[in-house]
């Protein structure tokens, strides 16, 4: 039924084996996620996805709505259980971990940036940033904190509550929070989806910067080709499968690829 992708299959499989020279921050091996249990309602949100995310790389995940981007991210981050397959963060295999294990893993190994409502309204910006550390009872590394805060450029607004910050500022606080615990990988689900282009650009360059300067690994879901162009690599999903990938993307090439995919789906 997915025969229209056959001409792309080749390109995908060639990228599959993890490159021997680079360490892997997150890996999915033949991951399936199936919703619904009756024949009629069954949805294969992920249908055998295998992918490696190299350390110190900024990867964007793209694809049409409902293609399984968020599902893939949730499975990788241990927020959702896979139906079949293997997921690991760093060298820790996470499927099969119980809630306590997953919680601990999330606390120390992953950072999150959601599209909106990223911050706790009762905490100040600074308290929101240190939240993952505080939860784990860890002391922040002061020099690192200062560096992150400086990079994120909030300076005098640290004592403010989220309601007193603009949407862009809120997202930058969320970025700083994701960074501060030095996680293995940061997952961002459309972090700029709710922002105007300028605030979006601020957030994206900040993410780019944290990859270049701090060697952070970032996986970002986006609909926006411009946002994707900040990444080192783009993976395209359709109907729960990886259908293409692209290294060193530019806005135009991403747009072209998306048109191709749409054409392939007959849209």
């Amino acid at each position: 039924m997915n025969s229209e992708y056959n001409h792309l299959e080749n390109a995908v499989t060639t990228t599959e084996p993890a490159s021997a020279t680079h360490a892997v921050a997150a890996r999915a091996v033949d991951v399936w996620k199936v919703y619904g249990n009756s024949e009629q309602t069954r949805v294969n949100a992920l249908a055998g996805v295998s992918v490696d995310f190299e350390q110190g790389k900024f990867t964007a995940i793209m694809g049409p709505s409902g293609s399984g981007k968020s599902t893939l991210m949730h499975c990788l981050a241990g927020l959702d259980e896979v139906t079949q397959g293997e997921v690991s963060i760093g060298d820790l295999r996470i499927n099969g971990l119980n809630d306590a294990g997953l919680t601990k893993m999330r606390r120390s190994k992953v950072g999150f940036i959601f599209q909106q409502f990223n911050l706790l309204p009762t905490l100040t910006a600074k308290e929101n940033i240190t939240l993952p550390l505080d939860i784990g009872g860890r002391k922040p590394d002061q020099a690192w904190m200062d560096l992150v805060i400086k990079t994120v450029g909030l300076g005098d607004r640290l004592g403010h509550k989220p309601t007193e910050l603009s949407g862009g500022q809120q997202q930058r606080v969320a970025c700083a929070r994701a960074l501060v615990a030095r996680p293995e990988v940061i997952f961002a689900d459309e972090p700029t989806g709710n922002l105007d282009s300028r605030s979006g650009a601020d957030v994206l360059s900040f993410l780019r910067q944290s990859v270049d300067e701090f060697g952070q690994t970032i996986v970002m879901v986006t609909h926006d080709p411009h946002a994707a162009s900040y990444a080192d690599r783009v993976i395209f999903l359709a109907d729960g499968k990886i259908v293409a990938h692209m290294d060193q993307p530019t806005e135009d090439r991403v747009l072209d690829q998306m048109k191709n995919l749409d054409a392939a789906r007959g849209v």
Binding site: T103, F114, P132
Partner: peptide, 16 residues
């Protein structure tokens, strides 16, 4: 609910 989800996502345990 939303806040609780966020807290749990960033690592708050059930006990906490």
């Amino acid at each position: 609910t939303r806040e609780l989800g966020l807290l749990r996502a960033v690592g708050l345990t059930r006990a906490q």
